[in-house]
Design a protein around this nucleic acid. Structure first.
Length: 426
RNA sequence: GGAGGAGUGGCCGAGUGGUCGAAGGCGCUCGCCUGCUAAGCGAGUGUGCGGGCUAAAACCCGCACCGCGGGUUCGAAUCCCGCCUCCUCCGCCA
C-alpha cells in the first residue's frame, strides 16, 4: 500500500511513476476521497468533543441533584447525536471506498528499474557459466523423466487433473534432496533462520503481502472457509511479524522456509502445458528478509547472490534479468529474475524471483521497528526471493545433466543427500 | 462435536455506567545517591488519525483505541447481542 500522504503531497510524481507500469490509476479520485475524509473527520471530532463536554456537565449536575437541568441538557445532546451518527456512517463509507482504491494500487517502481512495456524489455544484467555441449539432441525433461520412470503425468492426471505430477523413486529422492540441500545452504552458510509455517493462511495474511484483494483468481480457496492454500511461503513468513513493532537491534531478520506452493494458474491456459515447469502444486524454498529501509537495496543484491549460489553449486548455467516497469509484480519496487538454462527446450526458464517491496508490504501488514535512539516506530522494508523453485531445479538437472543413454548424472554436491547416488539409470 | 472459563498498556494485574488512556507492581529510560554492583530516592515511559506551528522535526490542541464488530445511553473498559482467539474437561482423531 502506498502512503496516502505521499499521494497527497506529490500526486503528479506518483501518477507519472505508476504510469510506467503501463496503466492509469485513479489518483484524482483518491485525492478527492482523502479530502472529503479529512473534512468529515473534523466535523465528527468537533461534535464528539462537544458531546463529551456536555456529558461531563450532566454527570456533575446529577451528582448535585439538579436532575431537571440535567434532563434538559441531555435532550439537547441527544438531538446532536443524530447528526453525529449520520456523519459517522458517511465517514465510514468514504474510508472504505478510499481503502478499496488504495488496496489495488501497485507499488512505485524504484528509480533504477528500466522503463518498459512487458517482459521483452527486461534487461539481462548477469550471466554465469556456460550452456552444456551435447553431441546428441538434448531432450526435454518430461521425456527424460517419463523414460526413467521418475515423472508420472498420466497417473497424476488420474489422481487429480492436469498440471500435477507424481514423482517416483529417484525422482522423489532428488526433489527431497534438493529441499534439504537448499535449506542447509541458506541456514548454515547464509545465516537464515529456518521456518516451517502453515500451508494454509487467512485473508488478512494474503492482504498483507498483496495477493488480495486483487489476485484472488490465482489462489485456491478452501470451500466453506476464508482460508487459502499458500501460493508461496512469502505469505506466511512475511506475516510472521504482522502488527508487531520490532526492536531495531533484531534487524535485519533472515528467514528461510520450505513449503509447497499452490497456484490456480488462471491466466495460463495453454502455457507450459508439458512438463513440470507450470504446476498447480510445486515445492519451493523461500528466502525472506526484514530490514531497515536504508539497507534494503544492498540486501536485495545479497539476497540475489544467496539464490544464485544454489545454481552455482549445482553447476547450472543461468542469467539474471532485472524486470522492467511493465513486467514488475504488483507489490514489488524492484525484481531480479534468475533464469536457468533448459537445453531440452532451448530456452531460459525463470527459477527464482528476488524482490524488494520496500515498505509496501510492511504498510499493508503493519510491520514496524522502533529506532534505537527512540522515537516513532518506522515501517521495515521486506524482501523475498526463491531459493529456489524446487520442481524447476529438478527440470534443469534432468535437462543439463542428461546423457545420451538417457541416464542423469547427479551433481556432486547433492550426492550426500541421496545416499551417495551418482547416476539415475534407465 | 458437547460443557465450562478467559481475553485490559512491553509484561503482571486492578477497575462493573460519569475527568479512566486507565490504580498498583514489574520492566525500561533519564537524574540523584553510592569504593563497584545491588538496594534506595525522584521524574518519565502506548499507538493511530486529524488539525496547528515548522524547511522538516520537536512541540501544542483534538479524536479514537481496554480481543473484533454492532447496539443501549446525554455518557461504555464497565450493560446487551453477534463473532474471533486462547485455556480446561469429555468425545473423536493423525
Amino acid at each position: 500500500m502506498l502512503d496516502i500522504r505521499l499521494i497527497r503531497e506529490k500526486p503528479d510524481w506518483v501518477k507519472e511513476r505508476l504510469k510506467t507500469r503501463g496503466e492509469d490509476y485513479p489518483i484524482n479520485k483518491i485525492l478527492e476521497l482523502d479530502k472529503t475524509r479529512r473534512e468529515l473527520i473534523q466535523k465528527v471530532e468537533n461534535l464528539r468533543h462537544f458531546r463529551r463536554e456536555k456529558s461531563e456537565i450532566i454527570g456533575k449536575l446529577k451528582k448535585e441533584g439538579k436532575n431537571e437541568e440535567a434532563q434538559i441538557l441531555a435532550q439537547e445532546v441527544k438531538n446532536l447525536g443524530n447528526e453525529l451518527k449520520f456523519l459517522e456512517v458517511k465517514l465510514r463509507e468514504i474510508e472504505t471506498e478510499l481503502k478499496n482504491l488504495l488496496s489495488v494500487l501497485p507499488n512505485i517502481p524504484h528509480e533504477s528499474v528500466p522503463i518498459g512495456k512487458d517482459e521483452t524489455e527486461n534487461v539481462v544484467v548477469k550471466r554465469w557459466g556456460e550452456p552444456p555441449q551435447f553431441d546428441f539432441e538434448p531432450k526435454p525433461h518430461w521425456e527424460i523423466g517419463e523414460k526413467l520412470g521418475i515423472l508420472d503425468f498420466e497417473r497424476a492426471a488420474k489422481l487429480t487433473g492436469s498440471r500435477f505430477v507424481v514423482y517416483w523413486n529417484e525422482g522423489a529422492l532428488l526433489e527431497r534432496a534438493l529441499i534439504n540441500f537448499m535449506l542447509d545452504l541458506h541456514i548454515k552458510k547464509h545465516g537464515y533462520k529456518e521456518i516451517l509455517p502453515p500451508f494454509i493462511v487467512n485473508e488478512t495474511s494474503l492482504f498483507g503481502t498483496g495477493q488480495l484483494p486483487k489476485f484472488k483468481e490465482d489462489l485456491f480457496k478452501l470451500e466453506e472457509w476464508d482460508y487459502y492454500l499458500v501460493p508461496t511461503a512469502e505469505v506466511p513468513v512475511t506475516n510472521l511479524h504482522r502488527d508487531e513493532i520490532l526492536p531495531e537491534e533484531v534487524l535485519p531478520l533472515y528467514y528461510t522456509a520450505y513449503t509447497p506452493c499452490f497456484r490456480a494458474e488462471a491466466g495460463a491456459h495453454g502455457k507450459d502445458t508439458r512438463g513440470i515447469v507450470r504446476q498447480h502444486q510445486f515445492n519451493k524454498v523461500e528466502l525472506v528478509k526484514f530490514v531497515k529501509p536504508e539497507t534494503s537495496y544492498d540486501e536485495l543484491e545479497s539476497l540475489l547472490l544467496d539464490a544464485e549460489e544454489v545454481l552455482q553449486l549445482l553447476g547450472l548455467h543461468y542469467r539474471v534479468v532485472v524486470l522492467c516497469t511493465g513486467d514488475l509484480g504488483f507489490a514489488a519496487a524492484k525484481t531480479y529474475d534468475i533464469e536457468v538454462w533448459a537445453p531440452g527446450q532451448n530456452r531460459y526458464v525463470e527459477i527464482s524471483s528476488c524482490s524488494n517491496f520496500e515498505d509496501f508490504q510492511a504498510r499493508r501488514a503493519n510491520i514496524r521497528y522502533r529506532p534505537k535512539e527512540g522515537g516513532k516506530p518506522c515501517f521495515v522494508h521486506t524482501l523475498n526471493g526463491s531459493g529456489l523453485a524446487v520442481g524447476r531445479t529438478v527440470m534443469a538437472i534432468l535437462e543439463n545433466y542428461q546423457q545420451e543413454d538417457g541416464s542423469i548424472i547427479i551433481p556432486k554436491i547433492l550426492r550426500p543427500y541421496m545416499g551417495g547416488l551418482e547416476k539415475i539409470k534407465p
